[in-house]
Amino acid sequence: MITQTNHLLAIGLFLVLAAAIASAGEDPGQTADQLTADEIVDNAMRVSYYQGADGSARVKMTITDPQGRVRDRELSIIRRDDLPKDEEDKNDEFLGDQKFYVYFKRPADVRKMAFMVYKHVNAADDRWLYLSSLDLVKRIASTEERTSFAGSHFFYEDVSGRNKEEDVHELLQTTKSYYVMKNTPKNPDLVEFAHYKTWIHRKTFIVVKAEYYDDKGEKYREYKAVKVEHVQGYPTVTRARMTDDRIGGYTDVEYSSVKYNIGLPDKIFTERYLRKAPIKYLR
């Protein structure tokens, strides 16, 4: 009996090893299938918000209301990963604090307005607004993340990234092109959705679609990436649409002049440059 058990154990061990070797020997792309839900979300976060050490883009938003009336927003956005001093990020794996600077160009009534955010992963963000006509640097309370950004259908959180730890992530499905994720908020009182699903492109980890559901399981909000370009080797969404049935209408967003690793100095994200826009980086 004892020898028979040992024999079976040995076969079992052999099988496990063989399975490992067999799978390792197959298409290397297959290893990605073994990513956990959290790893997939990390990769998607990185591709959406953290590519390179910094970046800049011109943004055009076209807001269409339910009656078909259109409003335009034009702004420039720059971003810098706030890497702790003496730390290196050779593999671009950093997913920590960031600094954002948004400079409005249109419409005329918000022109030259500047908005600065210190995004903290483990604390509330710090936000400042500069109103040029008053030369006023205003500090803004930031408890609400899911409120419209510049009157569009995008929320602040869509622009700077929703903290991964605020949701529980499950891999629902792996299709030929996508990881289909279900993301459920840990604290449902803070958000307007019951859960949302994301379709993450397996090859690039681009979020191609996101659908937001209410507590009756009805979809009311949808994000869709419409165009992706490869900028300096980084896959980048350059056109997207957010539709929201509760608000009505949709916002199309278009990114142009996208640049990565432009060597943004940290000092750009200070009061000095709120009052005097760093035009060099905003063109």
């Binding site: 030929k176 191609v208 990436a225 419409v226 490869h230 080797g233 350059t238 996208v258």
Partner: peptide, 18 residues
Amino acid sequence: PDLPDGLFDDAPPPDEPS
């Protein structure tokens, strides 16, 4: 969803910055 313009299941296309 259909893959958006610029995304493929195989190799990515060369850079085309706008």
